[in-house]
Design a protein around this nucleic acid. Structure first.
Length: 213
DNA sequence: TTATCGATTCTCT
DNA sequence: GAGAATCGATAAA
């Protein structure tokens, strides 16, 4: 798994990221995530069909600029007024596609991830279950300490990031409609969510608002 | 166990 | 000014 790998489109890259290890270092310590759930988003200049769910479906804007930059970089965006989410940028520079990291298992730096999660839960008592530390895109970013200012546009193979290929290819990969995507982009025409079966860290299936179409 | 709904701020039209 | 690639609490079954 190297820079070259990410010059493919997100649809090709996404399932191959399952089981990969992604680390983020910081002043307070290192957290490593084993990826168990991802989603592919295609965009301008890629080989895929028009993707109505993608931030880069129509044009380059200030927000999605890093999706159009070199592959193997991070695209961090802010969502719903309270969450960050991180994508791995795919496709050659000038074209845009990305893989949203939806969930994973924290295999290093559990305590730090735990602390970061608890900060936001003002009145929560007790620890967060291990399998829930990085379940959902917002929580992944939270556990890894990802922010737009610090990490958007950064190279995935250069500190504070590091990325390792899966030790072995997974026995089975499942796929289905994307979660939380409005309109047809969240429907069965775009079964671009990929996950590892039997992983407790993968979020239970939740229908998108208009996923029934 | 599964579904519904409120919170909260950024980006683009 | 609308709506969003969401989360977590609470309600219902």
């Amino acid at each position: 798994m190297d820079r070259e790998f990410f010059s493919q489109d997100a649809l090709y890259v996404a399932p191959k990221l399952l089981g990969a290890k992604f680390s983020v270092d910081s002043a307070v310590g290192l957290v490593t995530l084993r990826i168990t759930e991802v989603e592919a988003y295609m965009g301008l200049g890629t080989t895929g069909p028009y993707d109505p769910g993608s931030h880069s479906k129509d044009r380059r804007t200030e927000r999605n600029a890093s999706m159009f930059s070199d592959p193997a970089h991070a695209y961090v965006y802010f969502s719903y007024g309270m969450h960050y989410a991180i994508n791995f940028v795919c496709s050659p520079a000038g074209s845009a596609s990305g893989v949203l990291i939806r969930a994973g298992e924290i295999i290093e730096g559990r305590e730090l991830a735990q602390q970061r999660r608890l900060v936001r839960r003002a009145e929560s008592t007790g620890a967060i279950k291990e399998q829930q530390l990085a379940r959902g895109p917002g929580n992944v970013a939270q556990a890894l300490g990802i922010t737009r200012v610090e990490h958007d546009g950064k190279d995935l193979f250069t500190p504070p990031f590091s990325l390792q290929a899966p030790p072995e290819s997974p026995a089975q990969i499942l796929n289905g409609p994307r979660v939380g995507v409005a309109g047809v982009g969240g429907g069965p025409q775009f079964p671009w969510r990929f996950w590892l079966p039997g992983e407790p860290t993968v979020s239970a299936f939740r229908r998108g608002r208009n996923a029934s179409e």
